Each structure stands twice: as structure tokens, then as C-alpha cells.
Simulated assay, not measured.
Amino acid sequence: MSLLGTGDLRRIFENLDKNGDGQVSLEELNWLLEKIGIHYSMDELESSIDKSSLNFDEFLNFYNSISSEETMRTGESKSRESNEGDVNQETDLVEAFKVFDLNDDGFISWDELQSVLSKLELWDKRSERDSNSMIRAYDTNNDGKLDFEEFKNMMLFTISR
């Protein structure tokens, strides 16, 4: 799946859904995207979503489309689709990495991970333990932070599960 699990995404969705109607408006979604450093104009968001609000399943689909899941394919050949998917996936991973690399130094530190999760209202004591173990598990050079290749390996492993 992705760096954030379905339970985490459910909590984000419920926090965004201020009126409890089971829908997140484009304004609420845009607010979240701005908080995590992803900038869409409302026109871009409206044209990419083509709806005025999203239910939870649609929210999950949108999240997956911006966090390294391959997007829907055209009717082109399988080999071309695969190559384009690889390029799209790499581009998506670079963009996701930038969201977490707050100081733009080419690494994701534990503090940066905590900061992004806090902005998403996903930070608690359990998250602290999970974040530390997540960085340690994929930090192959043991420098206490993730470079892009380590982040990419973590994301690709998580997606393939």
C-alpha cells in the first residue's frame, strides 16, 4: 500500500470531514495538501478529481495516486505502460520524498518524519516508536536518516506487501 496505513488514512479523513457527512470537500482536501507541501490550485484539483467532494474510498484512491501507486493506464501496449509506470512511480517517489525532506538536505530525519506525521495529526507515542523502527529498518548505512534510495526501498517494499 503506502507509507500511511488505511487506519491512519481513516483518521486523516475523519479529521478532515468536519461536518461528519462521510465526504471530504475539495477545500478540505486542498487544506491538507497545502499542510504537507503539495500545491494544487483549486482548478487543478477540480479537474483531476472531477467531483466536489470525496468519500473515503475515493480519498484512498486519490492518496494512492499521489503517493506512488501507478495511475490508470491508456490503451497503449503493456511494455510501454510498464516503462511509463516506472517513470511515473519514480517521479511520485521523488515528490513524496520532498514532502518529508522538510529542510531539503536530501535526507529524511526522524524529526522530519515526526513533523509531517504531526501535520497530518497522526503523531502519538505509538507513532514515535513506529517511526524510529521504520527509519532503523530501512537505514542501510546506519546514519540515522533515510536518503532517497533508502526511502524508495521502504516505499516499494510497503507497496508490494
Rank of each mutant, 00 (worst) to 15 (best):
N83P: 00
H39F: 06
N55W: 03
F59I: 09
K35Q: 15
N83C: 03
D50E: 05
M72T: 15
E44R: 10
S65I: 02
D50A: 11
E58S: 09
S79N: 12
G37Y: 00
D57C: 11
S68H: 06
L26H: 04
L45I: 12
S47D: 14
R73Y: 07
N61A: 13
Y63F: 03
E46T: 15
L60K: 14
L45G: 12
T74D: 14
W31P: 00
T71I: 12
I66H: 02
F62L: 04
F59V: 11
S68T: 14
S53W: 05
E81N: 12
E76C: 06
R73W: 01
E27M: 05
E58Y: 04
E58G: 11
M72C: 14
E81H: 08
S25W: 01
E84S: 07
Y40P: 07
L60F: 12
M72H: 14
N83S: 08
N55P: 04
I66F: 02
L29D: 00
Y40S: 08
I49D: 09
M72K: 15
L54T: 10
N55C: 10
N83Q: 10
E81I: 07
E84Q: 11
E28V: 00
N83A: 08
S79R: 10
D57R: 14
I66S: 02
S65C: 06
Y63M: 02
K35M: 14
R73S: 13
L33Q: 02
I66D: 01
M72E: 15
E27C: 05
S65L: 03
F62T: 02
L32I: 02
S53Q: 12
N83H: 08
E46A: 15
E44S: 11
E28T: 01
F59E: 05
D43S: 15
R80F: 13
E58W: 03
T71M: 09
I38D: 01
S67F: 05
S52I: 00
S77Y: 04
L45P: 09
S82T: 09
E76F: 03
E76H: 04
F56Y: 15
H39I: 10
W31F: 04
N83V: 10
L45F: 10
I38C: 04
R73Q: 12
